[in-house]
Amino acid sequence: MLELQHISFEVPENDATHEILRDVSLTVPAGRLVVITGPNGGGKSTLARLVMGIERPTSGAILFNGQDITSLSITERARLGISFALQQPVRFKGLQVLDLLRLASGRDITPSDACEYLSAVGLCARDYINREVNASLSGGELKRIEIATVLARGTALSIFDEPEAGIDLWSFQNLIQVFQDMRRDIRDSSIIIISHQERILNIADEIVVLQGGTLAMQGPRDQILPRLTGTASALQGCRRIGGGEQ
C-alpha cells in the first residue's frame, strides 16, 4: 500500500540546514492499522505531510500501491486515494459543513448522507450541517468535522493526525469505533493514526515510534507496546507525551 524509502527532510535554518527527518523507511501493508507515536517534535506530523504531498522530501522516495508518487501534487495524491485529517484543522469563512463534506465526497451528496458522516463522529447533524466552518466552531467540533471529511472521502489510505486531541473522554469509545468501522467498510484500506493515547495504541496492528526524526522502534503492537510502557523511564516518557496534547 504505502512505502517510504529512505526519507529525509531538511529545512533551511539561517545559513545551515535543519534535519527534521533522517532516513526513515517504513512499509504500511494493505488492510493494516498503524499507529505512529513518539515525543513531541519527533517528526510525526511532518511525515504525514510528506505522504500527502504538502511537503516534499529532500531525499528518498514514496510509493503508493507500487507507484512512485514522490513528485506528485497534493491533488494527484488525493485522487489516487490518500486522505489526511490535520492535527490543526483549517477554518473557512462562509463555507458550510455540508459544502465541505460535499467537496470531500466528490459528489453532490444529500444532507441526509452528510448527516451519517457527522453522526459517526458524534455530532448531532441537524445542528451542524449548515454551520460555517469558521471561528464559531469549538476546537473539538472542528476536529470531529475534520475526521468526518476523511470518512466522506472513503479512500484506500487515511491518515489521522492526533484525532483524539480535543475530543472529550466521553466520546473516545465512539472515535475508536469510527476507525474500526472504516477498516470493515473499505476493503483493504489502511489507516495511519498519529497518537499519544494508549487506548489508540491498543487497537494498532503495528506501532511505529518516531523520535528525533528517526525511526526508534517499529513492529507488531504486541512487541512494541510492552517496550513503551514496560520500563520505568519509557513509562515516564509516555506519561509526559500523553499529557502533552494540544
Binding site: M52, I54, S73, I74, T75, A78, R79, S83, F84, L86, P89, V90, F92, K93, G94, L95, Q96, D99, L100, L103, A104, G106, T149, R153
Partner: peptide, 28 residues
C-alpha cells in the same frame, strides 16, 4: 490562506477549484 488551499487540495480539488470554492463560500 495557503492552508485553506492545501486543505481543499487534500480533498482532491485542483488549486483553481479550491480557490473558486473558497471565494464562493466567502461571498455567499
Amino acid at each position: 490562506a495557503g492552508e485553506q488551499l492545501t486543505k481543499l487540495m487534500t480533498l482532491g480539488l485542483t488549486e483553481q477549484e479550491a480557490e473558486e470554492q473558497i471565494i464562493n463560500g466567502f461571498l455567499k
